[in-house]
Design a binder for these strands. Sequence first.
DNA 1: TGGGAATCTTGTCAATGACTAGATAGTCTC
DNA 2: GAGACTATCTAGTCATTGACAAGATTCCCA
Lengths: 185, 185
Amino acid sequence: MTKRAYHHGDLRRAVLAAAIDAITEHGPGGVSLRDLARRAGVSHAGPVHHFGDKAGLLTAIAAQGYALLADALVEAWAATEDFREVGVAYVGFAIRHRAHFDVMFRPDLYHPDDPDVAAERDRASTELARGVDTVAGETDPHLAGIAAWSLVHGFATLWLTGALTDIDDAPEATARAIAGVLFRA
Amino acid sequence: MTKRAYHHGDLRRAVLAAAIDAITEHGPGGVSLRDLARRAGVSHAGPVHHFGDKAGLLTAIAAQGYALLADALVEAWAATEDFREVGVAYVGFAIRHRAHFDVMFRPDLYHPDDPDVAAERDRASTELARGVDTVAGETDPHLAGIAAWSLVHGFATLWLTGALTDIDDAPEATARAIAGVLFRA
DNA sequence: TGGGAATCTTGTCAATGACTAGATAGTCTC
DNA sequence: GAGACTATCTAGTCATTGACAAGATTCCCA
């Protein structure tokens, strides 16, 4: 896999890393392929070869994001076997991988039908639903799953946009609390 | 408003309306001031006078959106006096005023500290919290408010991004159902 | 060793946001 | 009703960007 090519070597990885930094700093809209090329020290058309166009770059980031999310959900379930902690992990992912999260749920910016994206998204979706029947005794599990997803996704989104100003610096603790409101122990 | 040769007459309103159409069609990122100017039949710099820059235009849209949201929440509470129906109205607003909603929760695109925006946002926030104590018997009302906001905001966001594909064409009915999961009658 | 493929560069084009200066219309005052 | 003042819109310009095309350099493999 070591690609000592031309002047740079591992341009694809370098551009992806630079894109994550740039998105974290300025949001998905504040990223330009030319700036990423400058950061990587290559010509302005260098990144194009690896991603085709800007949407291609964001597609790669979305796929990577869904993979990371699925991994995080798997780990949370394995560690606690508590459905609510899977939700907390969802929020934790959004905060810790803000750039990925911001891209993932803006399908107008990339190619949502990309096979890699679809596969990882399905995997994440499956992992998110795992264990929903352990807490939703009387209710429809499918509906409970939608409610749970909505709750943690909404909390994460509101937190990231700065709408929840009256919360102390422990978003995951608050996420755990509201998960308890939805699914009482 | 009859069109004049030089002066448009009602350019500010025309640009705002064109912007809503364009955002509904292509998202907030797919809007250009020059295209809006073309749609309104004025020169490429015409809209600048009314909004300063692109962020100024989106600021006006955000303020208008928060005002419309606050109105919708007021009406829902007045009509039903049911806190859960206020949440359903939140979802209904997001669907019926998608362009506004898409802008409102992307503060990186406009000036979130604008006085008009802040005032209407506070009003909407107040209206959203009204009645939360009628359903949150044992729990902390503040926490219950955050949970409710997260739930409906997350559901609306997921619906608008196309993430909830397995729901029939009645998002507000589903919203009502998950509000019932969070706050059982 | 030679040729094809992968990788990167250089050059170009239209579109855009932002800025400046100027032209025109509406309004107010006297 | 005339001039002055202000609001509104036009015309021109510039740097930046995404996308594309064509060429140069390096890698890989038979």
